[in-house]
Structure formats: C-alpha cells, structure tokens
Computed example of a mutant assay.
Amino acid sequence: MRLTDAFVTRSLDEIRFWSRIMKEHSLFLKLGFRCEDTQLINEANQFYAVFEAIEVKSHSFTLETDPQVVKAFNEEVYTAASHIWAFKRKVLGLILQCKMPGANNFPLLVDHTSREANYFRNRLVELNTGRLEPLPDAIIDENVFFLRIMADHAKFIGHLLDPSERQLVEQARSFSNDFDTLLFQAVDLESMRPQSQTIPLLDQFLDENRVSVKSLRDFKKTARDLIEACRIKSIIHPLLADHVFREAERFLFIIDMFERSLTGAKVPQQ
C-alpha cells in the first residue's frame, strides 16, 4: 500500500469511528444536565449536529479521494474535536466547583470523554504531519490509553446498574479491578522503556491484554443485549451500552493490528 493510500485509509477510519463517538458523547452529556442548564443543553445539541455532519461527510469520501482533500478534512475535524474537548473541560470544571448540583454526569465520565476527544485530535495531527509513533512506543501508549478507558467503563457500568443487580455489579467491579491492575502493569512497562521494548515482552503484553479485553467485550455485549431487551434493572441508556461495546471492539482491533505488525503472525479470531 502506498503511503498516500495508507494516509487516506487511516484518516477515514479514525474519523468515521471517533466522530460517531463524539456525537454520542454530546447526547450522553445532554441527558445528564439539569432542565435549567439550557445553555449547556443547546451547546451539546450543536456538537451533536456538528459531529453527525462530519460522520456523514466522512462516508462521502472513498479510498480514491485526493489525499490533500482528506488532509483539509482532517484539519476541519481537528477544530471540531478541539472545541468539544474545551466544552467537556468546561463542564468538568462546573461540576467540580459544585456549580451544577443535582446534575447526573459523573466527573470521571466527563473527564473520560475529554480524554477521548484529546486522543482523537492528537491522532489527526499525527496523520497530517506524518509523525506517527514508532511501533514499540505506539503499542505501549495505545494500551495505556485504552486500558484506562476500559477500567473507566467497568466503573461506570457498576455505578449505573441498579444496586439490586448484585451479580452484575460484582462482575463490573471485578473487571474494574482487573483493568486497574493491567493499567499499572502497562505504566510500569512504559517507565521501563526503551529497555522494555523487546518483541517477547511486547508480544506477551498484547496477549495478556487481549484476553482481558475480550472477556470485558463479551460482558459488555451481554449487558447491552439484556438492557435492550429490558431484562435487567439499570439507568444505562441502550446507546451507551452499545457505545462502550464498540470501544472494546476497537481496542481488540488495535491489539490485533499491533500483533500482526510486531510478529507477522496471524491473530486468534475474536
């Protein structure tokens, strides 16, 4: 694959995935605002419309699109991602300063969504400047980012399930502990680099994370299906259940991509 083809492919893949995520963040934040937070609700609605338009526009491009056109699109999306990042940080500040009593957005959830917006805009900069990280660094950094995201998801699920769903709450708590541990292991590997960046260590790192992410992905799928069928008690929006499932699927896709790049070996079916 030519570099220009890879640039277009990667850019469109990132934008199609993350623009939908940003759009859904806008909805979830809006649902957590109070009735009187009309300005914030309006801003959230505007961001929903912006990222919905970006998502639609991204599907109008093909792999044959001129890379310069895609580069300009990346810059446009970067601006939108920067604006929603700033909005999320503003909301987080209001919550932490106790200026929104009674609102239903956890501070960690708002911070979580802002980290994803920051990740998205940084990826667009990397693509447009051609400064993607070397594989060993990318493996560690992507896993540190996504392991924390997965740990957060487990915590959110545990807190949004009805307390009477004791077994599911306990499973979510167990996943939270597992991913906190995996995150600490990843941070340790990060601090040991470059000496830690050997193929055997990185390969084992990916294998161990894959097993845990697959288990969490399956748990999220089960929870999503039960929520959609109204078979469990929770305050989890069905779209949120699907949202966190898709992010686990994305992490598995990235792990498999790294495994192929690192060893050239085929990866197990997910």
Rank of each mutant, 00 (worst) to 15 (best):
H25I: 08
K23M: 15
D152V: 01
T9P: 00
E75W: 08
A6W: 10
F73H: 04
A103K: 05
T4N: 07
I21C: 01
E249C: 10
R250L: 10
H83T: 09
E75L: 11
E24V: 06
T38K: 14
N105Y: 04
R89A: 09
P238F: 08
T222F: 11
F28W: 00
V267H: 10
E259I: 05
R173G: 08
I236Q: 06
A154T: 06
A229S: 15
A53K: 14
E43C: 10
A248R: 05
V187L: 15
E24H: 11
F253D: 11
N209D: 07
D66Q: 07
E247M: 05
Q97H: 13
I235Y: 13
T129L: 13
V213I: 12
A138G: 00
E228Y: 11
I149Q: 02
N74M: 05
E55T: 08
S11N: 00
D37F: 05
P101D: 09
A186L: 04
I41A: 15
F106Q: 11
V213L: 02
W85G: 00
I227C: 05
F179A: 02
A81D: 04
W18V: 06
I232H: 10
L182H: 14
F146K: 03
Q68K: 13
H153W: 06
V56R: 13
F219C: 04
E36T: 13
N143K: 03
R20V: 07
P107W: 02
N74D: 07
M257S: 10
M1P: 08
S114T: 07
I41P: 03
F87L: 02
L27D: 08
R224S: 08
F184T: 11
L109S: 00
R115K: 13
P67H: 12
R217A: 10
H153M: 03
R173K: 14
E165L: 05
N74F: 03
A6C: 12
S261P: 01
A138I: 04
K220G: 09
R20Q: 13
K88T: 03
N177S: 14
E55Y: 14
A138P: 01
A248M: 12
A229H: 12
N177E: 15
F179V: 06
E165I: 01
A172D: 01
T4F: 08
H59R: 15
D5L: 11
R224T: 05
T62D: 07
F146T: 02
A241W: 06
H112Q: 02
Q171A: 10
E249P: 02
M150W: 01
V50G: 04
